[in-house]
Simulated assay, not measured.
Amino acid sequence: MASETNFESMPRTTAVVDWEPTLPPTELIFDDGEPLETNRHRIAMNALIRSLPSAMADRDDYFVGGNMFIYYSSAQVRNKDFRGPDFFVALGVDGRTDRLGWVVWEENGRYPDVIVELMSPSTAEIDTGVKKEIYEQIFRTPDYYVFDPFDPNSLRGWHLDANQRYQPLVANEQGWLWCQRLGLWLGTWSGTIDRVGAVWLRFYDRSGNLVPLPEEAAQARADLAQQQLETAQQQGLQQGALRQLLRLLATRFGTVPPSVEQDLQALDGDRLEELVDVALAVDSLEQFVNRLS
């Protein structure tokens, strides 16, 4: 008969289990090789990205991205749900850091503050359904917009209310939607970008001025410089013609009264040159003054 073992009398040992918290995945995919829907979608995305620095020139604590993956959970990585927003902005972050994508756990838990999805007939249901729910319930992104670059009347937007629920934004008289986080209007603009004429989604400042693309800003500066040069040239010609006329009047009729000189200063160069012939034809300063009117 086998002897019985008294387990209670045996010395107890403590099992040591090595445990560490589950860490986020480190091998992430940042390019699925899939392009945007169309060339117009690509241009629309780049127009928003490239124009934003003009509106944010007084700060660098932001990051703007487009068609980039946003990783926010291990489950998302396991499900291989990689596709990110077409355009997004995160505020209060180091904007000088180059990023392949937006990895929430590497950004101190920060999610985008503004998201824009560029819809197409094949993505509209997802953009206004599943993605909208994710941006509202998981990301808590304050401002979310959708727009189809081939449908000028498709712009829609939502803003998180005090209960963290999306409420539809009401457009102003121009059909623009206010973006509270950026302090900008988001609206349509008809024109040519990258040689493609269409109705594009653009930013406007608080006063309703179009936020320019870099090339538009450069052209505006060039136009202003040319205008200033032409103005300076015209002023130089006007001053030269004025001096010539005053010398002629002084030679023929003596001292020119200040009131007459003041009236002449208000005239352009062409009119002053015409008055040289008048000054040569009249017999007195009084006759010349009468011809001024």
Results as ranks from 00 to 15, higher is better:
residue 256 V to C: 02
residue 150 F to P: 01
residue 151 D to A: 11
residue 272 L to M: 10
residue 72 Y to P: 05
residue 133 E to H: 12
residue 6 N to E: 13
residue 71 Y to E: 12
residue 16 V to E: 08
residue 94 D to Y: 08
residue 225 A to W: 03
residue 81 D to M: 08
residue 214 P to V: 05
residue 107 E to Y: 07
residue 275 L to E: 06
residue 215 E to I: 02
residue 84 G to S: 08
residue 54 S to L: 13
residue 55 A to T: 14
residue 46 N to Q: 14
residue 268 D to F: 10
residue 57 A to Y: 15
residue 177 L to N: 02
residue 41 H to W: 00
residue 162 A to C: 05
residue 186 L to E: 01
residue 200 W to G: 00
residue 7 F to Y: 13
residue 161 D to A: 07
residue 117 E to Y: 05
residue 279 A to Y: 15
residue 79 N to W: 07
residue 165 R to G: 07
residue 7 F to I: 08
residue 60 D to P: 09
residue 123 T to M: 07
residue 288 F to G: 01
residue 65 G to D: 12
residue 54 S to D: 15
residue 70 I to E: 02
residue 91 L to I: 07
residue 83 R to N: 04
residue 215 E to C: 03
residue 68 M to E: 04
residue 163 N to C: 07
residue 11 P to I: 08
residue 53 P to F: 10
residue 32 D to N: 11
residue 112 P to T: 13
residue 113 D to H: 12
residue 49 I to L: 15
residue 211 V to S: 15
residue 138 I to A: 12
residue 112 P to R: 14
residue 79 N to A: 11
residue 227 Q to T: 04
residue 11 P to G: 06
residue 187 G to S: 06
residue 250 A to Q: 14
residue 165 R to W: 06
residue 86 D to K: 04
residue 53 P to V: 08
residue 86 D to A: 04
residue 23 L to N: 01
residue 197 G to C: 08
residue 105 W to I: 02
residue 193 I to G: 00
residue 182 L to R: 01
residue 34 E to M: 07
residue 99 R to W: 04
residue 4 E to N: 15
residue 288 F to V: 13
residue 225 A to C: 05
residue 41 H to G: 01
residue 42 R to T: 00
residue 144 Y to E: 06
residue 23 L to Q: 03
residue 198 A to F: 04
residue 19 W to N: 07
residue 164 Q to K: 10
residue 227 Q to R: 05
residue 77 V to C: 14
residue 33 G to D: 03
residue 100 L to W: 06
residue 241 A to G: 09
residue 163 N to D: 06
residue 143 D to L: 13
residue 230 E to S: 02
residue 291 R to G: 07
residue 271 R to A: 10
residue 252 R to P: 09
residue 124 A to I: 08
residue 234 Q to Y: 09
residue 196 V to G: 04
residue 245 L to R: 11
residue 117 E to S: 07
residue 94 D to I: 05
residue 58 D to K: 10
residue 86 D to W: 00
residue 194 D to W: 08
residue 47 A to C: 09
residue 3 S to I: 13
residue 228 Q to L: 06
residue 235 Q to D: 12
residue 275 L to F: 09
residue 268 D to C: 10
residue 234 Q to G: 13
